[in-house]
Each structure stands twice: as C-alpha cells, then as structure tokens.
Simulated assay, not measured.
Amino acid sequence: MKGHCQHNCSVVGEGGYICVCPRGYQIQLNDTKLCEDINECSGFGHNCSQTCVNIEGTYTCKCKQGFEMIDERCVVKSEVPAFVLYTDGPDIRAVDLSQQHQSSLVAGESRVQSLDFDPITDILYWTDTYDKTIKRAVIPNPSDPEHGNGFSQNLDLKGLTKPVDIAVDWVGRNLYWMDMDLSNSKPKGRIFASLLDGRYRKAVV
C-alpha cells in the first residue's frame, strides 16, 4: 500500500500525505487509510428515474414492472406505436417513430396554430387563427396506409377573437385555450376552459 493507504496517496506539504480513494469510494470515518463504497442510492448521487441499485464502486438503474429502459430513462411499455403530431399550417400530420413514416391526418384547414390530443378517445383538437375557431377530429389509424383524412368538427364557440394555444386535460376531461385580442395597441390574452365538447365555457384568467 502506498503510504499505508489502501489505494492511492497524495503528498501534502513536506513529508505529509493524505489517502485518496478511486471514484465511487470514500475515506472511512474511523480509518482514514481505508476506503469504503459510496452508496449513491441513499441520497441524490444518482440519475435513476425509478429504482437505483447500489453495486461496488458504482450503481445501476432499473425500471419497475410495466416500464422499460430507453435512453437511460424508464418509460411505459406500450404496444401502441409512438407518433409525433405536427402542423405545417393547413394540414396536420403524424410521424410514426418506429417506422419513420409520415401521414396526413387532417388536410385543408386555413391556419392551424396549435394542437393537442386526447388519448382516451383518440380525438385531436386544434385552433385555427384564420377562421377563429377551435376544431376537433377523430384521428384515423396512422399505421394504416389507407386510413384517409379525419373529418373536422367545429366546436362552434362563439365570440372567439384569435385562439392561439390549446391544451387537453384528458384526465379531468376539460379543454383549455388562450384567446388573444389584437384589436388594440396592447394585445390582451385570456384563458378559457370548457368541457371537451365546448359546453360550459368560462374564463379562467
């Protein structure tokens, strides 16, 4: 052992030294020449999203039942393909992340500003700032090449000035959106809420 240290020692001043431990270990409190394993799982010394398992000199991460490790994070196992939804203005499209395949879901709108999705009913909601409307459509199966486009339904919310952002509360079954008034020199925005079918609208902010 170097300088009677279990692992390494570092010279301090003239004739002095301290013991140094490798990564994943620390000096024992009752014997400064010996190193002991650091339990990263006992505090915040790990990056595990779910379960941390301490092993000698380091640690490893594990996922709970029903989850799997993807890119060092635990995500829910699902047999349903993952999709990214986006808009290019008049159309709403989907990208199948497993097959890298793009498909059109809704076409021929005026100016889609924002969108959100209800995973319970497979219904897509979006705002159209040109038509000053909020619409929805049942999403066809994007993995089927013959699915065609969804049929859009106007929620017919009267008095909208410019609905710009939208959010679906699929747990509470509510719809939230921001409506902008640009008629004055100082634009004003309000946040509204309603049921998912547009009923019982009220201002939140």
Rank of each mutant, 00 (worst) to 15 (best):
N149S: 05
D156T: 11
A193F: 08
A167C: 04
N184K: 14
L155I: 06
S185C: 10
K186L: 14
S185A: 14
M180I: 08
V164W: 07
D165Y: 12
F151M: 15
E146I: 10
L175S: 01
A193V: 13
L155V: 06
A193I: 10
D179R: 13
G159A: 01
R190A: 11
L175F: 06
P163G: 09
D169G: 04
N149G: 02
K188L: 05
K158V: 13
W170L: 07
N174E: 14
F151A: 15
K158L: 08
N154K: 07
A167S: 09
E146G: 13
D181R: 00
V171S: 12
L175A: 03
F151K: 12
M180T: 02
M178E: 04
G148R: 03
S185V: 08
P187F: 05
L182I: 11
D144C: 06
R173S: 03
K158F: 13
D169W: 01
W170H: 10
V171M: 13
S152T: 10
K162S: 06
G159T: 03
K162G: 06
G189H: 08
G172E: 08
I166R: 00
K186I: 11
I166A: 03
D179H: 08
N149H: 12
P145I: 01
S183P: 10
V168Q: 08
I191K: 07
L157E: 02
T161V: 11
I191E: 07
N174Y: 11
A193K: 09
G172F: 00
M180P: 08
D156V: 12
S152D: 02
I166G: 00
M178A: 15
N141D: 15
D179F: 08
L155D: 07
W177I: 07
I191C: 10
S143F: 01
D165W: 13
K186P: 00
N154H: 05
G172T: 09
L175Q: 01
K186Y: 05
R190N: 10
P145K: 07
A167T: 09
L182F: 15
T161S: 11
Q153C: 12
L175D: 06
M180N: 02
L155P: 03
A167E: 05
G172I: 06
V168S: 04
L175W: 01
M180E: 01
P163Y: 03
N174A: 06
N184H: 04
Y176M: 08
L175N: 01
Y176Q: 08
D179I: 03
G159L: 04
P163A: 07
F151S: 15
E146L: 15
S152C: 12
L175T: 00
L182R: 15
A193P: 09
G148I: 14
W177R: 02
N184R: 14
L157T: 02
D144K: 00
L157M: 06
L160P: 15
V168K: 01
S143R: 07
M178L: 14
